[in-house]
């Protein structure tokens, strides 16, 4: 097997060496068409650089002990090169389809170069002596480029995951708009439903903000909470307790009549929890506790 793979490597390396100029020119031209020009994904110099690097890495793989072994450092280097190139192109707005098509084009170019070399030989010799070798080369190219396609998809998935993660983080940020409305006073309008996972996120963000801003008072406004059940009320009290444990004052505001009614039927004890009718009343209370007086100039 090792002898066969060495032959395969030698044969392909020889072809590459003989036709390196035309192969490089062909894939570079296609690369500029797909990624350059109006697509503006890569500059011409970048296309030239990556084509050269690709051919160098492919040559290094062919010079390795077993080019078909996908665990060698040479194979890994080629994979990583494609992974990084794909990320670069995807970040700039490129499409995964174009990357895969370009990969296929490079594979076809290498097969074409093989064909050219075969045509230069006497036909009988080509058919009889090289059939097995050709089959191995084609299988090698097919296997290698399949792996490179996978590297492209891997990069695509990683980029998508990054995007999803960033969007989730942004959503979390907008879902918990903690604002420092005054030195040491934070406001947190709660809108929608407070489920367990959201409570954890809000609580974590709120407690970290208290520590970061040294907030002495937190006004939690419930105007946007339409319904409350025992679980939500439990989470609410949990948040109030956490704020108090940090040493800040928690003030609940904007409790609608239907929420107040629900709290009584749920047997929720709001003892030790400061409540005020509206956000502005809550802020006044926070200011009062901090000995801050806000008055009109008139």
């Amino acid at each position: 097997m090792a002898q066969k793979t060495t032959n395969l490597g030698t044969r392909l390396r020889d072809i590459l060496k003989l036709q390196i100029g035309s192969i490089s020119e062909t894939i570079e031209r296609e690369g500029r068409t797909i990624f350059g020009g109006s697509n503006n994904l890569l500059a011409n110099e970048e296309v030239t650089d990556f084509c050269l690097e690709f051919l160098q890495l492919l040559m290094a793989l062919l010079e390795s002990r077993d080019p078909t072994d996908d665990t060698t450092p040479q194979f890994h280097a080629l994979e990583m090169f494609f992974n990084n190139l794909s990320k670069q192109i995807l970040v700039r707005g490129g499409r995964v389809e174009d990357l895969v098509r370009f990969n296929q084009f490079m594979q076809r170019t290498l097969i074409d170069s093989l064909e050219k070399e075969e045509q230069a030989k006497p036909s009988k010799q080509a058919v009889q002596q090289d059939f097995q070798e050709l089959k191995e080369i084609l299988l090698f190219l097919s296997g290698t480029f399949n792996e490179l396609d996978l590297a492209v998809f891997q990069a695509y998935l990683e980029e998508k995951e990054k995007t999803i993660y960033a969007q989730e983080a942004e959503l979390r940020e907008t879902a918990t708009p903690i604002t420092q409305i005054w030195d040491g006073v934070l406001t947190l309008p709660i809108i929608g439903t407070l489920d367990s996972s959201r409570t954890m996120l809000v609580m974590e963000a709120l407690l970290n903000r208290i520590a970061q801003d040294r907030a002495q008072a937190v006004v939690m406004d419930l105007t946007g909470v339409k319904n409350i059940d025992s679980q939500v009320s439990h989470h609410l009290i949990q948040m109030v307790r956490a704020v108090q444990l940090m040493g800040s004052d928690a003030i609940l505001t904007g409790i609608r009549p239907e929420i107040a009614r629900a709290l009584t039927s749920l047997n929720i004890d709001l003892g030790g929890v400061t409540t005020r009718a509206s956000l502005s009343d809550g802020l006044k209370e926070a200011f009062r506790r901090m000995n801050i007086q806000v008055s009109s100039q008139n």
Binding site: M203, A211, Q238, R241, A242, V243, L245, M246, G247
Partner: peptide, 14 residues
Amino acid sequence: MQPTAAFALAGMTL
């Protein structure tokens, strides 16, 4: 009190 400690304690008792 550290945020992590307050977080854990609030989950433990109301």
